[in-house]
């Protein structure tokens, strides 16, 4: 059984022209867990993974797998398996040929090709040219390529994108079993809801910066409290909240205030002599989702 090794990002920075796609990202991804690498589209996730895999040269810093940079790995596929994007296949080549080319190049026993095709459920389509594949089948082929060398570390960029509900269920249990075997599993996604049932740890990036790292539970704890309040004199209450610098949102049931406990709002209203008719802390429908959106900012809602 292959054992996982940690992935380490040490101050990784990538500058494209005048824009920092990734800024000073430092994080460790441990074996035996599924780590979600989350952030909105354009947050720098793919660039970070490509730096880890030696495809993009970091401007500063370095990313290592078990202490080695990717290009120094002797048989990289035996250490790290990666599935980056669903389009990286020559349309005229069959799935089997694609995997055979990779096995030859990376010195993996070509007998593994049939094993991984079976593992991702592509055996019956394996002689068909990739041009005729659906997005879901391409995702499975990408995953098959990642598994080719039976690696201890798996790096998967948006692997759930394009899968049907059955495929999503399948990949969740698959990732879980890989981590339970002691492998390091790093999965990127722009949707927290897509992976929250699967991941143990999260790394959250926004605008190229790491904004949170830790367990999934730690993310919930960062969720900003929200309070629903109202007053007979609404404009006066809105004025108080504005003076306090609290973001307030007027709705049909009252004013939704985020970032403050009920006590603070009540005190501010009392001090200003504004009568309250409602002051109720809101139970978060998804504390995780809110925390995530708060961390990544507006564009996370896309």
């Amino acid at each position: 059984m292959p054992t996982g090794v940690p992935i380490e990002f040490e101050g990784v920075t990538k500058r494209f022209g005048t824009v920092d796609a990734v800024s000073d990202l430092t994080a460790t991804v441990l074996p035996g867990r599924v780590t979600g690498f989350l952030g909105p589209n354009g947050a720098g996730k793919t660039t970070t993974l490509r730096m880890l895999l030696g495809l993009v040269t970091p401007t500063r810093g370095r990313a290592t797998i078990g202490g080695s940079v990717y290009r120094d790995l002797d048989r990289p596929f035996a250490t790290v398996g990666a599935a980056l994007e669903a389009a990286s296949f020559h349309p005229g080549r069959s799935a089997r040929e694609h995997l055979r080319v990779l096995a030859l190049g990376s010195r993996i026993d070509p007998a593994r090709v049939d094993v991984v095709l079976e593992a991702v459920g592509l055996t019956q389509y394996s002689r068909r040219r990739v041009a005729g594949y659906s997005l879901g089948m391409r995702q499975r082929l990408g995953l098959a390529a990642a598994l080719l060398g039976d690696p201890g570390v798996l790096v998967l960029d948006e692997p759930i994108n394009g899968l049907d509900p059955e495929g999503i269920k399948w990949i969740r249990s698959f990732l879980r079993s890989l981590a339970d075997e002691g492998r390091t599993v790093l999965v990127s996604s722009h949707l927290l809801t897509e992976v929250e049932q699967t991941v143990d740890e999260v790394l959250i990036v926004a605008k190229g910066r790491l904004v949170h790292s830790g367990s999934l539970a730690s993310l919930e704890a960062t969720a900003a409290p929200r309070v629903l309040t109202d007053a007979p004199n609404r404009p006066a209450l809105l004025g108080v909240l504005r003076a306090e610098g609290l973001p307030a949102e007027e709705g049909p049931d009252g004013i939704l205030v985020s970032g403050a406990e009920p006590g603070r709002i009540g005190h501010a209203a009392f001090a200003a002599g504004v009568e309250l008719s409602l002051l109720a802390p809101q139970r978060q429908v998804s504390g995780l989702e809110d925390a995530f959106l708060t961390l990544v900012g507006e564009e996370g809602a896309l």
Binding site: L53, G54, L73, F77, L84, E85, S88, V101
Partner: peptide, 17 residues
């Protein structure tokens, strides 16, 4: 064709040198 079909990604993953 490696550039066009983006197969440089798997190619360089298999052979990083």
């Amino acid at each position: 064709s490696e550039f066009r079909h983006k197969t440089l990604t798997p190619t360089f993953l298999a052979t990083p040198r």
